[in-house]
């Protein structure tokens, strides 16, 4: 059975592509056959985060238009046999993606025996974002503990509950998961960042992961190696926990407690 997971947020810059890349790698490491699709037509970026930008020959829209086969457009990951990337088109034509076209590609992936399809949504609530979520079975809503991100995410939750195929069919809707990113436990403790419980209370959905603010994330995208592969990064470990939870394991949250201050900073503040 193929499961379609949309990674979405409403607001831009909160870590959707970083999350899509790491979830895809995490699932592939667990022997799952995974395709990760960039829905951000005109602003392709997943290829850079995955480190396959120089191997893009055909893209999502080429497949939809029948200009190549699905197999030709799927870029096999260099590190994981069972992981494939489908790049976004760089066309400026906003109507390049159609619901029928997207469905055709997803059905094709189903026939190829993929276990998971990760749909990396563009920001906003326009066509690309709407199509990324339409066929989803589950949604990972990426949120920063910050007012505009939380509000936009709530908007997205409303759309997931009404503008998706599962919602239209009335079979329970899309399963929703909250993934907090750029979480800084020290700032939460000092009272200038909302806590996990605060965000959860406002949005009312379960937390599938909390990714600490980490220098490793920028380093990973600089290198084109998804951060989940960085053994030295807390963010990487936190993503691995999130993948395990998506697969039904229960794991305690890590990296969510403030660091105890040393004697020096106790005396001099900071």
């Amino acid at each position: 059975m193929t499961e379609i997971i949309v990674v979405t947020s409403g607001k831009g810059g909160v870590g959707k592509t970083t999350t899509s890349a790491s979830l895809a790698v995490g699932l592939a490491r667990r022997e799952k056959k995974v395709a990760v699709i960039d829905f951000d037509v005109g602003l392709r970026n997943l290829d850079l985060i995955m480190g396959c930008e120089r191997r893009v020959v055909y893209d999502f829209v080429n497949v939809i238009n029948g200009e190549c086969t699905l197999k030709q457009a799927l870029i096999k990951d260099k590190r994981h046999e069972s992981l494939f990337v489908l790049a976004a088109s760089q066309t400026r034509d906003k109507d390049a993606l159609t619901r029928e076209g997207v469905e055709k590609v997803l059905d094709g992936l189903r026939e190829e025996g993929f276990d998971y399809i990760i749909c990396d949504s563009p920001a906003g609530i326009e066509k690309g974002a709407a199509l990324a979520m339409y066929f989803a079975d589950r949604a990972v809503v990426v949120v920063n503990p910050e007012v505009s991100s939380v509000r936009d995410s709530d908007r997205i939750l409303g759309l997931l509950a009404s503008k998706t195929r599962r919602a239209e069919l009335g079979n329970g809707g899309v399963e929703q998961h909250l993934l907090l990113t750029r979480y800084n436990p020290n700032r939460v403790e000092s009272g200038d960042m909302m806590s996990i419980a605060d965000v959860q209370e406002i949005l009312g959905i379960d937390v599938v992961g909390v990714i600490p603010e980490s220098e490793g994330v920028l380093a990973a995208s600089n290198a084109g190696v998804p951060v989940i592969l960085d053994e030295s990064s807390n963010a990487g470990h936190a993503y691995d926990d999130a993948v395990a939870r998506l697969l039904g394991e229960s794991r305690p949250l890590r990296f969510t407690e403030a660091q105890k201050k040393g004697l020096f900073s106790r005396i001099f503040g900071g």
Partner: peptide, 18 residues
């Protein structure tokens, strides 16, 4: 404690928008 301010503001606007 600005986090509490954020939470209260969000609670109201989110309820209204819902």
């Amino acid at each position: 404690n600005t986090a509490n301010v954020a939470k209260e503001r969000l609670r109201i606007i989110v309820a209204q928008e819902r």
